[in-house]
């Protein structure tokens, strides 16, 4: 599969659009279907496609496993951190109303933004980590 020129070119063309689409799903989640879970999976799918066609080693060079492992934990930290910030600002855990000074609706938007950022980071990290773990076993390379 690695030396099929049609697949290689198609992947090269598709990958940027998949990445952009993942970001669209993430940031348009407030207005249409979508959100952190879907966007994280789509983002991971772009790298899985790249790894399938260009080989796992090349994908690991673009996206080192350490970065992916860090993403897994970082997302949960961002999510819980949003809650801690709202506690520090004097409200309940994960109460977004206080996140923007004196503007509850803006605060809600900020809270949803950070929380969804945490979700996409963890989902992306977990999906790619599992893919790396399974594809990195003997017999695939």
């Amino acid at each position: 599969m690695t030396y099929n020129i049609i697949l290689r070119i198609a992947t090269k063309v598709l990958c940027p659009f998949i990445l952009i689409f993942a970001l669209y799903v993430q940031f348009h989640g407030d207005y249409g279907p979508g959100g952190g879970f879907q966007a994280g999976v789509i983002l991971a799918a772009a790298f899985v496609l790249y790894a399938l066609v260009y080989g796992l080693e090349n994908c690991r060079r673009v996206l080192p496993p350490q970065v992916v492992y860090a993403c897994m934990a970082l997302g949960v930290l961002i999510y819980a951190g949003t809650g801690v910030v709202s506690v520090l600002l004097g409200a309940d855990f994960l109460d977004y109303n206080v996140l923007a000074h004196g503007d509850p609706i803006h605060g809600q938007h900020r809270g949803i933004f950070w929380v969804e950022l945490g979700v996409i980071t963890t989902v992306f990290g977990t999906m790619v980590s599992i893919f790396y773990a399974i594809a990195g076993r003997k017999g695939l390379n």
Binding site: G29, D30, G32, I105, Q108, I112, E116
Partner: peptide, 10 residues
């Protein structure tokens, strides 16, 4: 309260 068009997200 939230002013987000997608209720599911909210």
């Amino acid at each position: 309260e939230i002013e987000v068009p997608n209720v599911v997200s909210a």
